[in-house]
Design a protein around this nucleic acid. Sequence first.
DNA 1: CTAATCACTGTAATTTCTGACAGTCGTCCG
DNA 2: CGGACGACTGTCAGAAATTACAGTGATTAG
Lengths: 252, 252
Amino acid sequence: MTDLSDVESIIESSLTVSSAEEVHSLCSKLCQLLGFEYFLYGSQFPTSFVNPEYVIISGFPEDWWAHYNTQGYMAIDPTVLHCTTRVVPLRWEDITPDKTGAGKLVHKFMSEAWDFGLRTGASFPVHGRNGEAAIFSLVSNEDNNSARGMVLENLAIGQLLSGYIHEAVRRIIVDGESTIPKVQLTERERECLTWAAEGKTAWETSQILNISERTVIFHLQNAAQKLQVTNRPQAVARAVSQQLITPQLGRS
Amino acid sequence: MTDLSDVESIIESSLTVSSAEEVHSLCSKLCQLLGFEYFLYGSQFPTSFVNPEYVIISGFPEDWWAHYNTQGYMAIDPTVLHCTTRVVPLRWEDITPDKTGAGKLVHKFMSEAWDFGLRTGASFPVHGRNGEAAIFSLVSNEDNNSARGMVLENLAIGQLLSGYIHEAVRRIIVDGESTIPKVQLTERERECLTWAAEGKTAWETSQILNISERTVIFHLQNAAQKLQVTNRPQAVARAVSQQLITPQLGRS
DNA sequence: CTAATCACTGTAATTTCTGACAGTCGTCCG
DNA sequence: CGGACGACTGTCAGAAATTACAGTGATTAG
């Protein structure tokens, strides 16, 4: 079992790191601490549905990672699939592809990973406040009961620390320089977008907010400009996926 | 430290529970196991931005919970605020409202909670695959260092189990009967919605997909009907928030 | 005080969306 | 084989959104 003070120290470090390199070494440290050889952090920010932004911090063997990318394995990786759809960790031993059709590819993928030293591990999903999805994997190159026991023992710690790692990345990447823009909407812009997302026309929204239809259009146009989008459906999609508008608390 | 086999048994139970009552007793069990007196599970499903669906499973003192609701405390509850914006647990001892303005209300709120026996605890955020946000709180009525130590020790376990609880609720509520409908879109409907969410007009989408503009409109109308919405922005908003359309893997 | 920001309003031309009409073609399943 | 379903296409009228024009008034930060 891992020492509580070590975990606390990693949490504290995660709150102060300020570059991707520091996150990398922090991950390495926690990886070692928990007894694993390899790690991988990856996240996807919903800046666009067709070309989302990715942030990858890899502690996987370089040749495997290169192979993974040239083969486009992300599309079939069962850990990625799990982490985009679930909120609980995936123990790699629980991956059981069927031998037919798509399962065959997954089988090949996993045996290749095994050959590169990625043998026993767990993947932790993190879903963030801005609609981003992240995965953090911890992997051992042992393939035995002791390694599997280690995975089980660290399931909770791994899930907890994945959250802190993700928030560190988020702070550095999104709130920092980055290609991922930070958009500040005004109260009115949010209101108008919310009602648009609710299916109201500009005129209907104007009745709800007791302002003129023209003003509603004005706010929606300003919002669209800030979001760098060209029309209302796209503005609504961005606002929703970046969680600039969220279901109101305390209603219903 | 909690026994690993107890945690495993709770995880297993979470996979088979089939009613809200069973979830309640499962939560009670884990609450006791970790040494707490009270729990609360709450989640919000983004079925609508104005009237979201709530699922509450309360193991809080009844009179406090009634008071909480009549006062509309959800809007100011710092644990709710934390869990809607963060992905890591909140230790209640870290809540430090300023004494000015809104902080004053929070202060009042917390001292009232203390009076009802809610004194030391932690709240765990869970963000789900369909844009839903959940909070799981574990609370002790002790207010001393041993209780605070207990919170710290169970931070990882609590975060892990919150995920399993949430998935159990999700399975029962959303995939079961429920007021939250499960929508199945066809491939074409998803494609058309995705491009609409990218800001493409029906005509532009028709060029991308090599079909007629009329057909794109047709698919969008069918999607809107399935989603029970009245126009395109709303259809896009629903599809995004229910993650019926998601950023494509392996691009960018 | 000045500049910036936000909330607000109007007109007019053009494009896009919505809704209601009416169909074809192919596949899968009982 | 018949029925259900998905993908596909067309026209037309009315409603809504987009773009571009041109402003007012209030508040706030430097």
